[in-house]
Nucleic acid binder design. Sequence first.
DNA 1: CGTCAATGGGCAATCGATTACTTTCTTGTT
DNA 2: AACAAGAAAGTAATCGATTGCCCATTGACG
Lengths: 338, 338
Amino acid sequence: MTVGRVTIRDVAERAGVSTATVSRALSGARPVSPAVLEQVTRAAGDLGYSANGIASALRRSRTDTVGMVVPSIANPFFTALVEGVEHALQQAGRQLFLCSSRSDPALEAQRLRSLVARQVDGIIISPVHGVRSHDAVSWAAGQLPLVQVDRYVAGVDSDWVGVDDHLALRLVVDHLADLGVRTAAFVSSTLTNSSTELRVAGFQEHTARRGVAVDQVLLGEYSIDWGREAMRRLLAAGPLPDAVACADDLIALGVLQVCAETGVSVPADLLVTGFDDIPYAALSDPPLTTVRQPQDRIAGEAVRLLSAALGPDRAPPARSALAPSLVVRSSTGITPSG
Amino acid sequence: MTVGRVTIRDVAERAGVSTATVSRALSGARPVSPAVLEQVTRAAGDLGYSANGIASALRRSRTDTVGMVVPSIANPFFTALVEGVEHALQQAGRQLFLCSSRSDPALEAQRLRSLVARQVDGIIISPVHGVRSHDAVSWAAGQLPLVQVDRYVAGVDSDWVGVDDHLALRLVVDHLADLGVRTAAFVSSTLTNSSTELRVAGFQEHTARRGVAVDQVLLGEYSIDWGREAMRRLLAAGPLPDAVACADDLIALGVLQVCAETGVSVPADLLVTGFDDIPYAALSDPPLTTVRQPQDRIAGEAVRLLSAALGPDRAPPARSALAPSLVVRSSTGITPSG
DNA sequence: CGTCAATGGGCAATCGATTACTTTCTTGTT
DNA sequence: AACAAGAAAGTAATCGATTGCCCATTGACG
């Protein structure tokens, strides 16, 4: 397959100029005469030349590439975030190097090392774990500009953009309480990262404020399967609470599925809420009430912060929590058509 | 943030040896004495040295990185494929550089150029378009080892792994015909790539064979929104066919959603099938009958083929079409609980 | 005891592009 | 007409790691 690659030297030779001139003609780093530009362009075209990005990166010590590390690319919340980031980077003329940490701090550390070794210009990360991600993230942040999104590890000197989880749970709990809910369970993840913890804390606090009794708090992982498992446990544990709030939509979808299978009618027998508003939240049976995160704004803001950090001026770390909104659907409302 | 990076020279100096020795000690390219190894390891550790991957790549002309280009990372079918590939690569000690072409041949070409410029060792791609992707994919395949997955562009000298689309549609059509379906519509994408075309062709052929009348073939894109739109058109067009087969699950989910909204009862009034068996196909209302693709096997096979192509021996291009299986759920069956 | 092979280590070329510095050639000014 | 300033192009150092080639030491073997 591989043909002997054509280098800048070949182009220079064919155009009858020096490699310096070729470089300048092609990159526009400095003006060249129209005649030479024409020559070089033609030669490069004829030879099918494309610059060796590795060599270029080594010399310039820039790759125009940003690394992104997310816990999972199967989770639609993160895919939406990734797409937003990629789009925003595109406009800044940068490429995205995407990695999945598979919710494993060890793998995450490896990805970060690899990104640093590959000399990406900056990193956007949603860390796996509030404690076990600390060392790797902190180290990486010391090597190059780094922005945390969605979740963050405390004690790392970096920017962060995410959603206001506390406010989000106020929206959820107020909505449930307004519907007359007296007891509620919360299904979340064991992961001790910022947003997971803030969601649990927010649930506790706002239920207390509104006089809603907390039935159970079940911790597992962010997946459909865990949602199924959690709902089975709730069924096994005895009388159901009035509502089940979930820390993400995948969990909620699993809960809904088990409800459908076991004949628990939602919302007649039980109210269910999710978190994230992934595209599939509107398609479930019944459609899911959830909290919408402004992913595009989060992504845009993350890229903006990173771009700022790539610039010459040092700014103090910024933390911005964007406001979420509640999306009410049938899982906490009246069934649309019976 | 950035500290002056520590280079191999610094380590060599601290350990009192040459850079050549450091390189050999750290990479194990050639044996060094235990004493020196100890010295070097300690020095590297003290200084927090990590090799500059760019420089290393330039010299070795290898990056141990594989690029992957998919039309969309929001489509769960591709995310599953990506995860499978990443997992398989991991075991081979390689990293994945993931790009999305957003179903745009121009963007796809840009991604390919960028991957080649970045000197990835090989590329795995699911091309956007059967014709408009040709030049870029063909060019890339000429530069380095390349494997096509799922879809392929004809006339490119490369390996391909995917599913047997023709067989898949036989499974679908036979299933529908066995249930007594006399008329059916097909909702697919305008994209003229191999798998899209094979699915449409398979639908036509097998419906003809089984004596099922083809009501309409609607072409749009692989998205929930297009599924919604297509179903609205079918409703507007007059009496519904007995069944609607869809070229992917996202389309089918959109179709089901509009059915729910407009009171069309599935499967009583209409049978609906999808394609891919994404995780959300089991969660819809009603759960979706669909074709399961063996994504893990596709991913594993793609990596295996690429690894082979990276080796010294040239093998003729391989094409392997793996067998899909039908997953029957309520959208073509009896409603589980009324 | 001399020679040869094996072993460990260093020197310097190399990968390919960029760029500081220098040279050459115009052009404009007085 | 002489000289300064500016534009265009070339020369060669450089980015940081790897590796071909060579040298020195050591031990084995005849």
